[in-house]
Design a protein around this nucleic acid. Structure first.
Length: 949
RNA sequence: GCCCGAGUGGCGGAAUGGCAGACGCGGAGGACUCAAAAUCCUUUGUAGGGAACUACGUGUGGGUUCGAGUCCCACCUCGGGCACCA
């Protein structure tokens, strides 16, 4: 062993040397406060330092501090943002770059239940471990700006923002603050004033002064942006808590824990995100996000324009939502969801039994079965009919489970000729299918049938623009001859509105956000209750600290006990829940709200706290927010300059966060309309996972490959690819990589394996490639025996050309976050230098500076060896000399009839005629032409010559 | 079923409509070494040929173009999201 080690030169770039370099520079950066970004105002103010620098706010989606720490899949995005931040610092920017921890949530609570340790203790330990791992990676975060959502100094402001939302209502009439339309949040006090003055009428028209305290409170609470409401929720007895719709899996079980989930109605805190539905859709246009993510958000919000139409029935009016009011004349029956409240009243005696049986069957079905594709339509007739408002015809009312309670009004008008589901339902039950549009000839031709209005010949419904027929009544509505859906809809809506049968209406798929959890490890609500309902605590009482307790887990129940009721851990703490307070009208007794907020709350505004993390006066100083996030003028919404994170947050986090930001904007607390201007979705690092014959995952690290087959302790196993993590037993810790190669190598490897937005498999054996690269760079600049710099004479013009082409390419690549190709270009430059035999003295510094964002520790060490006393983090990034980017001659490929046949070398400023002549004179071209006369010659300057013969 | 992505060597990937496979891994051969590791050099899409070279080649089939991995149409496969959304 000793002998083997002595063979390695003492100053070779080995993992041991890499460790030494990295730890030393990490300590240096910390001591010199290298990454601290000055603020223009507030506690971190340093106005002189801010002056003269452009700002840049770079943000990662912050991690949840799990007990297993980081695996190498986590830092892909972090390394990317670090490279970008370091690069921009070298370009003279003041870069705000920080990292925090999204530390509330169920896993910490459940882990704490298992280990008996308080979640605060385990969370603190996990955060400390992840901080260590991230620091070891050399990320250039401003350490002063780190936040932890479970820190009372942080969640004090989460609670404060909640109170801002609670104390607001949405005025749909007032022009928005950004001038982009109507609607804005206003202080609830202004609504009360409007009620008092009579400017705003009460719901039942009585004078405000005549109302009791209870009535007034109920009216006001009903308008708040955060409100308590009876809501259909997913009760999960196995977790002892309610889970959000978004957290329920397709098979009706909980996302975490995989327990059965039951639909129940319970009183819950809700956030009125639906008030912002229009703005959340419209303002997507202002953002630099990919179309894919924008489309996903639009689909989630699901705006559809149509009409609400009322049909008279024996049980009263039935309201339906339709996107095609223009097809009302074709509505020949109605379908209600089995759970619709009018079903009982509509059902006649002779149909009672069938309806009851159908409702039982539908209720017993899990959502997944109800949504099963391709099954036959089912349904039963209620025995009653309603009246179609446009033609007074009787339409039978059915119930069927393909109509859902949760969307629209839970009732539809069925137009079998114009909607495929209705068409199938009508065929199934022998209901009439009158035609109300004349489909175009091509539609019939495409289906191989004769054009006819006899729908018995149609294989399916016709959907789209086409002239209407049979669509007129004697009461002023006549669509016959109209041929566009838009015009038909407009005319129908107008008629419906005038005759009071309905009105044009926009419907959203988005529902209000269920905001309370019956758990322990979350932010307590800054709310107490008196006999009339919730009462906001004053700002002075914040933070409302999460009370200490031994029993911090929610009470759990038999997972199948649907009718159990949630019991929050806070419910049991009488000493905490029962309080006497003076909230302005003398001391009174109150009961604290025992819910906690969902994990989303802390992540809804963390980017704002990074900006001013130590401010005790306010959640963020307005001047600081304006500096880092303010709009850059003319249609720019403001927000984070670059936000990098996984596509799995495309909808929920990014929607909730935008909603909170918009409320804060409406209330004048922030100057930016949107929180995240540019969003970049990084890919996942996938890792091989192995299952044995019992379909159980085995430790991937223990699997051997033999001849393309895989074995775990000699048992054959099968390979699949998945996210890295505990559940697939395929995690690779960055600590292993630091030991084997060092952080610089890990950084380069993760960046080199592909573009940032692509998912790619982790291959530990490939990591060595980047290690070798750094070793070769080191060897080109440092003598491996003496450790002294080893530089050659000044570069030739040819070498300078290579250098400047590299500089140009690397700049372009990093600007576009194409870090993988930037690395390739640096490897090419280094390989070129290796062939030269030594690195010219005037190439060494630009090379080191270009490496600085990517492998910062190695670059710092080399920079010091080149004789610099200070760090290079603020050295200007090299700039390419345009004169060096053009060569005297260029090599041009020549095609004959589109096939590449030869290459010619001509002056780079050669005219087309010169290029043509050179191409025609080329021996291989002459051979390929074989005597044929060129018919046409295409010269693409600098690219190619193509001779068509 | 709908929406959004993506299909390129043994593997990860590169390529403003202009020489497909940069760069890295892996493989093969060589140098150094008693030997091995490490390091360095050469080579490596497939088929044929000693070689020059020739043919083929970016999921499939068409199309546009002087020229297509790249643009258009249809289809197939994989990944992600949504889902009887009226």
């Amino acid at each position: 062993m000793a002998h083997a080690e002595s063979d390695i030169p003492p100053f070779r770039y080995t993992s041991a040397l890499a460790q030494d370099i990295e730890l030393r520079w990490q300590a240096w950066w910390e001591q010199h406060h290298s990454f601290e970004a000055p603020n223009p105002a507030g506690p971190l103010a340093d106005p002189d330092a801010v002056a003269g620098m452009e700002k840049l706010f770079v943000l990662d989606m912050f991690p949840y501090p799990s007990g297993t720490g980081l695996h190498v899949g986590h830092p892909l995005g972090y390394i990317g943002t670090d490279v970008y931040s370091r690069y921009k610092r070298m370009a003279g920017y003041n870069v705000c770059y920080a990292m925090g921890f999204d530390a509330f949530g169920l896993p910490a609570e459940q882990y704490a239940v298992q280990t008996g340790q308080h979640p605060a203790v385990t969370t603190a330990a996990n955060v400390a471990n992840m901080r260590r791992q991230l620091r070891r990676l050399g990320l250039s975060h401003d350490p002063r700006r780190s936040i932890d959502t479970t820190d009372p100094g942080y969640y004090r402001w989460t609670q404060w923002i909640f109170l801002q939302i609670f104390n607001s209502w949405y005025d749909t009439e007032l022009p928005s603050r950004d001038g982009r339309g109507l609607g804005r949040a206003r202080p609830i006090a202004e609504l009360i004033t409007a009620f008092e003055s009579g400017e705003c009428p009460t719901p039942d028209g009585r004078e405000w002064a005549e109302l009791t305290e209870a009535e007034r409170r109920a009216i006001v609470d009903d308008r708040r942006l955060a409100y308590v409401s009876e809501a259909p929720v997913n009760w999960c007895p196995g977790l002892g808590t309610v889970v959000a719709n978004e957290e329920v899996t397709a098979d009706g079980r909980s996302d975490r824990g995989n327990f059965p989930v039951f639909k129940r109605s319970m009183r819950q805190w809700m956030m009125r995100i639906t008030s912002y539905a229009d703005r959340l859709i419209d303002d997507l246009d202002l953002l630099d996000w990919t179309d894919a993510i924008k489309t996903m958000q639009r689909n989630w919000i699901g705006r559809s324009e149509g009409a609400r139409v009322r049909f008279a029935s024996p049980a009263g009016e039935i309201e339906v939502f339709t996107t095609r009011p223009d097809t009302l004349f074709g509505a020949t029956f109605m379908v209600l969801a089995p759970e619709h409240p009018l079903v009982a009243a509509l059902t006649t005696h002779d149909h009672a039994e069938a309806v009851a049986a159908y409702r039982r069957t539908a209720a017993a079905k899990k959502d997944i079965d109800r949504q099963d594709l391709g099954r036959d339509k089912t349904g039963v007739f209620t025995g009653s009919s309603a009246i179609n408002p446009v033609n007074a015809e009787l339409v039978p009312v059915w119930i069927a489970d393909y109509v859902l309670t949760g969307y629209g009004t839970g009732a539809i008008m069925a137009v079998p000729c114009g909607d495929q589901r209705d068409f199938e339902f009508a065929r199934q039950f022998g209901l009439a299918i009158p035609a109300i549009q004349t489909p175009p000839a091509a539609w019939f031709a495409g289906r191989g049938i004769e054009a006819s209005l006899d729908t018995a010949t149609w294989p399916e419904a016709y959907v789209g623009d086409a002239p209407y027929v049979n669509s007129a009544n004697a009461d002023g509505l006549d669509l016959n001859g109209v041929s566009s859906v838009a015009e038909g809809t407009r005319l129908t809506n107008e008629w419906l509105s005038v005759r009071s049968h309905g009105r044009g209406n926009v419907n959203f798929k988005l529902r209000d956000w269920l905001f309370s959890r019956q758990r322990y490890w979350g932010e307590p609500f800054p709310i107490v209750h008196d006999e009339f309902g919730p009462v906001a605590l004053p700002d002075s009482s914040l933070p409302v600290l999460l009370p200490e307790t031994e029993s911090f887990s929610p009470r759990t129940f038999d997972p199948d006990d649907e009718f159990s009721n949630p019991e929050s851990p806070l419910d049991r703490l009488d000493w905490w829940t029962d309080v006497e307070l003076d909230l302005g009208d003398g001391p009174r007794r109150y009961h604290r709200d025992t819910n906690v907020m969902p994990q989303w709350a802390g992540s809804c505004w963390y980017e704002l706290r990074y900006l001013d993390p130590t401010n005790d006066e306010t959640f963020v100083d307005p001047a600081v927010e304006q500096y880092w996030m303010g709009p850059k003028g003319n249609g720019h919404p403001g927000g984070v300059d670059l936000y990098v994170g996984g596509v799995e947050h495309a909808v929920l986090h990014l929607l909730y966060s935008r909603f909170w930001h918009k409320v804060l904007f409406d209330l004048g607390h922030v100057s930016s309309i949107e929180p995240y201007y540019r969003l970049f979705n990084q890919g996942l690092i996938l890792a091989a996972a192995f299952k044995d014959e019992r379909e159980i995952y085995v430790e991937a690290a223990e699997v051997e490959e033999r001849d393309g087959l895989f074995f775990h302790h000699d048992e054959p196993v099968t390979r699949e690819w998945g996210r890295m993590g505990k559940s697939l037993k395929n995690g690779v810790s960055p600590d292993e990589m630091y030991d084997a190669y060092g952080a610089d190598t890990l950084r380069l490897y993760e960046m080199s394996t592909g573009p940032m937005d692509a998912s790619r498999p982790w291959e530990t054996r490939d990591v060595v490639g980047m290690y070798r690269f750094l070793q070769r760079v080191w060897r080109n600049l440092v003598d491996e025996d003496s450790g002294e710099p080893r530089l050659g004479p000044p570069a030739t013009v040819e070498t300078l050309r290579v250098l400047h082409r590299t500089i140009d390419g690397v700049r372009t690549d990093i600007d576009g976050l194409r870090i993988n190709t930037a690395i390739s270009k640096l490897i090419e430059l280094n390989n070129y230098l290796t062939k030269l035999g030594s690195c010219p003295c005037d190439v060494a510094e630009p090379l080191v500076l270009m490496l600085a964002p990517l492998s910062p520790h190695l670059a710092e060490e080399l920079w010091a060896k080149l004789g610099h006393a200070d760090s290079l983090i603020r050295e200007p990034f090299p700039v390419a000399d345009p004169a060096m980017l053009v060569a005297a001659t260029i090599e041009l490929p020549v095609q004959v009839n589109g096939k590449f046949r030869s290459r010619i070398v001509i002056p780079s400023d050669a005219t087309e005629a010169v290029a043509t002549a050179a191409a025609l004179a080329d021996a291989k071209v002459i051979k390929s032409l074989n005597g044929a006369e060129p018919k046409k010659i295409i010269v693409v300057p600098g690219r190619t010559v193509n001779i068509v013969a």
